[in-house]
């Protein structure tokens, strides 16, 4: 029997580049089972459900015909959440109750100080949660048996995140292209596939022009309506709606520019990437996805995921090929539990 099969070998060449062959119909089955089990377990199953969705999506995403693999488990996500629940959420609830009691006693100053600190803690934990979620997902991602990874620390990421945010506030948002690229530089620069490391060229000046168009619109809007308020006139109100439309258009225009620029400046072992993406296409994706979710009350969620994956794969091009011989297995230590903090903040639905 083997001789017959031998003749059929290598009938179809593997597709080059990145492809996705998941189907909304199949993913819907996964999703439906998830909903059912999530309901009867009072939400507890969602950790396992998320894992199954990821397994499906990862295993249909391919590079050079070889599928990615998601090796995380629901138990890891669950334990990650339990740890965060006892280490972070429960103490914060305790402080919250304490503040309530202080409020009863009328100690307003102390309430403001503690409440403020509470918000500060939340604010600092947020970027750490994002970073850790990335780290977990990458450490559970395999391609040809080679593990991805994320080095660096959540603390440094959070420090940069908050520092850049302050810089944006001080510069009235004008530092946005710079801070966006610098934050990506830290994240991307810490991504590994096996022994191969990604890097991002931190040039940001080409983003300034598209950003200024977006920024200019917002400034125009404020100047216009502050002036109208001061003058007490309503005669220019008809301009409000067109200006808001313009802000939205330039937002997608700028977002697409960021994606093109950032992806275009990523390097990996001699490989370059590019996304051929226009602002209106990005808008189209979000707009249709939004309509799908709203009009089906979320039932279309699997199709929305597939649409996003197909869109990305369609736009993404890989230039060149790394020397696969030189990419050896990742020896970095893996995080043991997953995403508890991100779960607590409800970041990312898949």
């Amino acid at each position: 029997m083997s001789t017959v099969l031998q003749e059929l070998d290598a009938e179809q060449p593997e597709p080059d580049g990145v492809t996705f062959d998941g189907q909304g119909r199949e993913l819907f089955v996964v999703y439906l089972v998830n909903i059912l089990l999530t309901i009867v377990t009072f939400g507890l199953y969602r950790f396992w459900g998320k894992t199954r969705i990821r397994q499906y999506v990862w295993s249909h995403l391919r590079y050079k015909g070889d599928a990615f693999e998601y090796t995380g488990t629901g138990l890891e996500l669950f334990l990650g959440f339990v740890i965060v629940f006892f280490a972070v959420i429960l103490p914060l609830i305790g402080v919250g109750i304490w503040v309530q009691l202080l409020l009863q006693q009328g100690d307003i100053t102390l309430v403001i100080v503690i409440g403020g600190l509470l918000y500060l803690v939340f604010f600092c934990l947020f970027p750490i949660a994002i970073f850790r979620a990335y780290r977990y997902r990458l450490s559970r991602t395999l391609w040809r048996g080679i593990r991805f990874g994320l080095t660096g620390t959540g603390r440094v990421y959070a420090a940069k995140f908050i520092g850049y945010l302050l810089l944006q506030i001080i510069t009235l948002g004008l530092a946005s292209p710079y801070t966006t690229v610098k934050l990506y530089e830290y994240l991307v620069g810490n991504v590994w596939m096996g022994s191969g490391r990604f890097s991002l060229d931190p040039s940001w000046k080409p983003l300034m022009r598209p950003f200024l168009m977006f920024w200019g619109c917002i400034v125009f809007y404020f100047v216009l309506f502050v002036a109208a308020q001061v003058a007490g006139t309503t005669s220019i109100n008809f301009l409000a709606f067109p200006t808001m439309i313009a802000i939205a258009c330039f937002y997608f225009y700028y977002s697409a520019a960021v994606y093109r620029h950032v992806v275009g400046n990523i390097m990996f072992e001699g490989v370059r990437f590019s996304v051929d993406l226009k602002g209106r296409e990005l808008f189209g994706l979000f707009f249709v996805n939004g309509l799908l979710l709203v009009f089906t009350l979320g039932i279309a969620f699997p199709w929305v995921i597939v649409r996003i994956m197909n869109f990305m794969v369609d736009k993404l091009a890989v230039h060149g090929e790394p020397d696969f011989e030189k990419i050896s297995q990742n020896t970095e230590e893996m995080p043991t539990y997953g995403e508890g903090l991100a779960e607590a903040f409800d970041i990312g639905s898949i």
């Binding site: 083997s2 031998q6 070889d66 040809r144 048996g145 790394p322 030189k326 990419i327 050896s328």
Partner: peptide, 16 residues
Amino acid sequence: ELGIQCGYFDGQSAAE
């Protein structure tokens, strides 16, 4: 000679 040609990844490198 009787076998089927397949790809193998040894888990040590990304080469096929």
